[in-house]
Design a protein around this nucleic acid. Structure first.
Lengths: 264, 264
DNA sequence: CTCAATTTGTTCGTATGTATG
DNA sequence: ACATACATACGAACAAATTGA
């Protein structure tokens, strides 16, 4: 019995409990309509004081996940959360489809004062870059923050469109620009205070960090992007047999109710 | 001037500052040997009291990242952390290579009391499953926790090997078992108290959660795995032009030196 | 309708940790 | 180092609402 692994102090105990119980609800362990165990029992299970349990429940009630009624008990009102996942693109075509129609919000635009971080393996840097910082928003929820370094020569061809539109389609529209390499690396991080504020998530909330670069035929890196996604927005589907990720499948698979396809 | 986005209360202020400054060190903004700004300046920058800065610095000193000397200043001693990434496999072959030689530590073995969660799109469930819970360890560091649900009929063919070896190679060795589908979905989460304890990471540390399933030719789901990785161990490389991920590239690409399996 | 049992809600006192000046 | 203020957490007691006998 008692708490399995409640740590002391970094996060207040009652919030840890809230996290724990929130998970039980979202996982379905406590389905909608369930009456939670009485506070007395929760005290026993978690080995904490009455008030602490009560605080945790108050937090969940504030989120409209439960209702507490004197003399009756505490009931689950929120069902398992339905999240709208964003399937991360893993091919150029899928990437184009994914960002189609996106209108990024420009936060910051600067000349190439600060060069992007480019490793030698990625290619050699362009003579100058234009730096942009943008926020992508869906349903009024900001879900990713992009720092783009774009070859100054490309930017200057269509400065206005580069400022207001997504850059990748623009590049691929230019017939004389050959895209020889386009790669990205995904890692997992957590939100520092600045990112937390801009993405409107708590500090240290999990994030997906994508480093993307594009090189032309001469090996010159014409585009670099460092993207930070909200962790709870990102999903990546991988078909192990197909030899690689299949984002098309991924996008339909979840909400669309499309059948799986084993053709290649 | 003042803090960009220091949130109030969920995490103590001095720990938020420690996180922030720890990042500056690991990112290279404050390289090894640097003398940090005087406390007075840090007070101004973050807009907090002297003692709070001091608390944050004490935390970093405890981690051997800095040294504080009275009358001289605070100096960075720890360099940017060198992480040994584990490239997540995105094809069957890469997956085989990745888990080659792995000896999982069995935590729990049970009969198929609890069925795995299988969506209709994945296939129809087997009559019975064997449930295993395992921990994977590398250099004495646990980096992932796996819950495996294996078709009882397959388990019974080689119970001993199933207990002690990785399951996937076993399955692919069985000539009469046809693997028709093998897919996995990666999402990002954070460690609940139980997982945090087993992976030895702080509560709410970011994690990568992989749901993997294998179906045979008849559409029967013979294997389901729910895997939780430490977020700081996972990296995923994607070649946008190649049409899919290229994990082989991934393993070598990063810090050149560290290979997947090196012995001490 | 009353009584008792159950269950949530509130308050008091105390102790500790956090943050300021 | 000190004084102050606030949040967290505990234990204990008491209040209020609901239910069923």
């Amino acid at each position: 019995m008692s708490a399995p692994g409640l740590s002391r102090s970094p996060i207040p105990l009652y919030l840890q409990l809230a996290i724990l119980m929130r998970r039980r609800i979202s996982v379905g362990e406590w389905p909608k309509g369930t009456r939670l165990p009485a506070i007395e029992e929760l005290m026993k299970e978690f080995g904490v004081a009455r008030v602490t349990i009560s605080q945790a429940l108050a937090e969940l009630e504030r989120e409209n996940l439960i209702i507490r009624k004197q003399g009756r008990g505490t009931f689950v009102t929120g069902s398992a959360e339905e999240r709208h996942w964003l399937a991360l693109a893993t091919s150029w075509d899928a990437l184009m489809r994914m960002i189609e129609g996106t209108r990024p919000r420009l936060l910051h635009l600067a000349d190439g004062v600060r060069p992007p971080r480019i490793s030698e393996k990625e290619g050699h840097p362009a003579p100058a870059y234009r730096h942009m910082k943008r926020l992508h928003v869906k349903n009024d929820v900001p879900y990713c923050l992009i720092e783009i370094y774009l070859d100054q020569r490309i930017f200057d061809r269509a400065p206005e469109r580069c400022r207001t539109e997504t850059v990748l389609p623009l590049i691929s529209e230019m017939p004389d620009v050959q895209i020889a390499r386009a790669q990205q690396t995904l890692t997992i991080g957590s939100a520092d205070p600045e990112i937390a504020e801009q993405l409107q998530i708590p500090i240290n909330a999990p994030t997906a960090e994508v480093h993307r670069f594009i090189a032309d035929a001469s090996g010159c890196v014409i585009y670099v992007a460092d993207i930070v996604y909200r962790g709870d927005f990102i999903r990546l589907d991988i078909d192990l047999l197909g030899g690689g990720a299949q984002p098309t499948l991924a996008e339909n698979q979840y909400q669309g109710g499309t059948r799986a396809n084993d053709h290649t």
